[in-house]
Design a protein around this nucleic acid. Structure first.
Lengths: 329, 329
DNA sequence: CTGAAAGCGCTTACAG
DNA sequence: CTGAAAGCGCTTACAG
């Protein structure tokens, strides 16, 4: 910029005015400056600009795994909102590791992002207190923060699961299994709660081998299914706690003789083309991303200044065939 | 930092030394500085640091759509490589709009990212020349840049398609259709070329209604299929040019009486669980992301300094049942 | 309409 | 071992 000013024979401020299209420059001077800019190939350094401006026009997004379809859809929605507000997006995957999440979040804060959208891993996010105090707007998404009062946007996990399990009960099922994600994950716990509540309010007992929580690896899902189907009172229906579990359950059940009714939490591509097509409790991945990002920018723009908000988005039961039949045993 | 220095009664440079864990500070002074840091809740501003250092330790990733499973997997691989090099990742979706791509890329460059990984949209990337000249390392991925000589990492699109079409021919098919993405997209053109070459080398003619290029919307794919199946010489097999097309083709074919052999380019989740399971030419999405990012850092670290490289990753034909039968008409 | 000075929050190159 | 000065590339607040 100094070079441009020198070449055009003007002051730094005049160059700045031209670059930022500020008024109050004679066309003549402006043209001279522009010529110098072109000749020197000058490109404004936004990092320097933002240092002075004290806004970085960037947002950090931390989630579990960028490659998971649910989070991929969520990311895209956050990106679109950020773009519409002129902000760039840093992204990072925590891989469900609280330490890695913290590293990412603090790295973003050290770059002085204006705000954060975080799918929290772990159960203690007090490490964010100094950052929030320093003015970093933060919205949690998909799960609430641990030990921290902050904005959160999530799906009605317990209610959605109640609806799905009640759907199975309405079709005559009494012995219903539930396979969920690791118990420490908030959504997993909420969905388990929904399952228990639906069973209880129908007056149904729940045997210990009917529900299983843990990593969503094929091996574990298969083992859990074996236990549910092999016991004294085998289940006739299964509620799958997330789309990873559903996909594996479909694969495992395809190789088994029993015909088990299935409802999955979270929709997934091709669920409608499978045979049978899979009935799901669909959540709105782009929706929660969009709502979270909008809340973030409402805070950044000072439109919202009150205490932490909690937004719960509804789910939608989509009947496709995998659950709409009575017990087969 | 100034406040910390004042409170600890030391110079700025000493605070800098403590913050960066540089040697040459007495434990006593270090402790005093650390106390001031804690008391004031000081957090280093990396943006300022990087302004001085002239490295931003960040990389920009521009792709078509963060929510597409192929690009989501690619992104995650790029992210992992970036992390292992201590760099943060900016991401943005071009939505296949060259103008939007350019906006994103130039915005990243204005932040002075160290490097770029770009899935190019459009056919002219000369707008990047000044940036590359200014030292921004750039690697293209999935498709080569237009009118620009730069590193590129891609899948063997023509070869993979030849292999897939030859597979159909080997099972006795002679009338084979091809549905691809918009003709302006490099991968789409290459795959069409592979289709033509495979047909030609088997001495088979290609009727105009047997191939169709365009947006991968369900409507268009269905219309193209109708044309292929309704003509005087209906196809007995289809090669789907990408996973969006394959998914729609599966859906459309499920509602039709004909039994059409199908091979898809690019694998997708649940392809193995469909009935029939879908035979695909699988490309390695994380692989091309990883290789591209590694090439980027080799340039950034000065390990590679020679001219533009072109890396082509092999594909893998996975036989699953949708293509392993003779013509049904 | 234009520009010199000060400053954003750090690090570099140097001297003590 | 420690620190004052200059500078990274820009903008702000001001004066002319």
């Amino acid at each position: 910029m100094k070079d441009v000013a020198a070449r055009a024979g003007v002051g730094l401020k005049t160059v700045s005015r031209v670059v930022n299209e500020e008024p109050g420059v004679t066309p003549d001077t402006a043209a001279r400056v522009q010529a110098a800019i072109d000749a020197l190939g000058f490109r404004r350094n936004d990092s320097a600009r933002l240092l002075r401006t004290r806004r970085t026009a960037s947002v950090g997004l931390v989630l579990e795994d960028l490659a998971d379809p649910f989070y991929a859809a969520l990311s895209r929605a956050v990106e679109d909102v950020a773009r519409s507000h002129g902000a760039l997006l840093f992204t990072g995957s925590s891989a469900e590791d609280p330490r890695r999440e913290q590293e990412l979040v603090l790295a973003f804060c050290a770059r002085r992002v204006d705000g954060l959208v975080v799918v929290p891993a772990g159960d203690d996010h007090r490490y964010l207190l100094p950052e929030i105090a320093a003015g970093v707007a933060t919205v949690f998404v998909d799960r609430p923060a641990g030990r921290l009062d902050a904005d959160v946007v999530l799906t009605d996990n317990a209610g959605g699961t109640r609806e799905g399990v009640a759907h199975l009960i309405a079709h005559g099922h009494r012995r219903i299994g539930f396979i969920g994600d690791q118990p420490g994950i908030h959504t997993a716990g909420e969905r388990l709660r929904g399952y228990r509540e639906a069973m209880a309010s129908a007056g149904l007992k729940v045997r210990p081998e009917w529900y299983a929580m843990g990593p969503t690896t094929p091996e574990r899902v298969e083992a859990a299914l074996d236990a549910m189907l092999g016991g004294a009172e085998p289940v006739t229906a299964l509620f799958a706690g997330n789309n990873r579990v559903t996909v594996t359950a479909v694969r495992v059940l395809a190789g088994r003789p029993e015909r088990i009714a299935l409802v999955g939490f979270d929709d997934f591509e091709l669920a409608d083309v499978l045979d049978p097509a899979i009935t799901v409790v669909a959540q709105d991945a782009p929706g929660i991303g969009r709502v979270a990002a909008q809340q973030l920018f409402r805070r950044l723009d000072g439109i919202v200044t009150d205490g932490a908000s909690r937004t719960e988005l509804p789910v939608r039961l989509i009947e496709r065939g995998s659950a709409e039949f009575p017990p087969q045993q």
